[in-house]
Design a protein around this nucleic acid. Sequence first.
RNA 1: CGGGGCGUAGCGCAGCCUGGUUAGCGCGCCUGCCUUGGGAGCAGGAGGUCGAGUGUUCGAAUCACUCCGCCCCGACCA
Length: 577
Amino acid sequence: MRYSKLFLPTTRETPAEAEVISHQLLLRAGCIRKLTSGLYTYLPLGLMAMQKVAAIVREEMNRAGAQELLMPMVQPADLWQESGRWQKYGAELLRFKDRHQRDYCLGPTHEEVITDIARRELHSYRQLPVNLYQVQTKFRDEIRPRFGLMRGREFVMKDAYSFDVDDEAAGKSYRIMKEAYHRIFQRCGLSFRAVEADSGSIGGSFSHEFMVLADTGEDTLVICSSCEYAANVEKAAVALSEAGSAAEGTAALTRVETPGMKKVDRVADFLDVTPADIIKTMVFLADGEPVAVLVRGDRQVQEVKLKNLLGAAEVEPIDDDTVWKLTKLPVGYMGPVDIQIRLVADQEVMRMTDAIAGANEKGMHLRGVNPGRDFTPELVGDLRQITSEDGCPACGGRLSFTEGIEVGHIFKLGTSYSEALKATYQDKDGVDKPFVMGCYGIGVSRVVAAAIEQNHDDNGIIFPLPLAPFQVIVLNLGMKNEAISSAAEQLYRDLQDRGIEVLLDDRDERPGSKFKDADLIGIPYRATVGKVYEKDGMVELRLRATGETTMLPFESAGKQIATMIREELEQLQQSFD
RNA sequence: CGGGGCGUAGCGCAGCCUGGUUAGCGCGCCUGCCUUGGGAGCAGGAGGUCGAGUGUUCGAAUCACUCCGCCCCGACCA
């Protein structure tokens, strides 16, 4: 490709709308342009990078035995009513009517449609297992789209669905996908980690997330330093230590004035205790109903765990005014004793003795509060966020925390969709059984953003070679110089003939601009033909990632560059073969 | 949806508080000259319903109200 013919509008300045680096660089490097909030046009360069990801995904999915199909983006409401998600999915599902006033939605995911295909076309255990996937644009009416491609409303996703005869077979399908995902992200040249995850609204029993490690990640991961354990903090179970569990509270319940002490720290200071001696009471809205949640004063409520314990579809924190309106409880002085709303507690709270808690009266706290004696929660469970002081749930080892960007998620779905949609097959004995399903997603467009979050510097993007729109950029620094220009052209053709994806910068620009743009768009290899060629017959090869520079004799430059690229790509592939 | 901020040329911004000629600056763009190894220089030029509407005023980018759009923090997620 010739740069002079390529639609590649780069900018020197960063548009004010972009906050995170991948968004800034995607805009500056002419990869995307915004249409409106959460909706982007992929310009040629951005599309090329995304197609690189998609190609790797397709190769590995096919290798794993999955088959590609393509489902409609518009889906009829009745399918969603059958699965029950028309009610459950919430405002993220964009609904609309056609001219006949029939209800439809824009597909945020395709469990319903694929299950419909399965129930129509798969009838016998002999046909199983089956794994079908697509690469398609999804639409989710996100509450707040942000960060460019990281969280758009429209995004490109690869979604796969497996159908098996039983749990064991489904487990096998799951493991095959997990393996395929490892290969995919490995081949993309990304630093990533698979972690145990909450299965979220899609439902199902078990799941792993694939996280690209980057400082700007939206998720926090805990990783054990001594075993294989890795999990999303939403999921990471807190192991309750046995220490102190035998002690029994003896103090009598007494009231104490704590005027103006709304924060745990201040109450602790005032009463000369530590936050760990205080029971913190917070109110959440679970499917619209207020619920009081207890954790130790120095702990944080993990909302996903709370949601799962309550079996709620939605849990949200509420502001002080709303708490008062709904419950007549004074924020800052709430406590579990004689509370009039639903009460749940973190397991750790039940071990506390002679604790401090709010008195449900402004300016008052209680001393000597003892679980069991003074209050009994409706539910007790692991509700708090894990901390670095907690041991690994698997082996007790030390935990470290890392930020990550979720680019893939695999779920064991079980039979929830197949049962709801009556999708069954006949087993050997002629008995109708629901398919045991799995579903497997990769945010293809998000992978591009994540790759940039992980790989960039002050000068721009540093594409990993497998995702780069072009593998090499050849700079012609002597547009008006016959010898230099023809040498650049010759190198360009030579690389093309060797099957290398090469961009020739043949624009009538000064060298400085060419260097800057080459850096900005992140092409891994840069070959410069200029003065040095004229003088010594040498081409300068520079690696975008390291800045490492070597001089190659013009005659063998094409061959050497092609070889380097081949070797780098092969290395990434071989690391798991 | 709750909280915060912003809308002035393609992009980045000033002007607004304290209303008053022709609305500026940098980058980019066009023409010419010149220059050619890290976003050069000189000269000339094009480009604006100041987000929209209503109001206040002799007079509104500037003040008030309403609406729209966008961005940031929270809940959601590939």
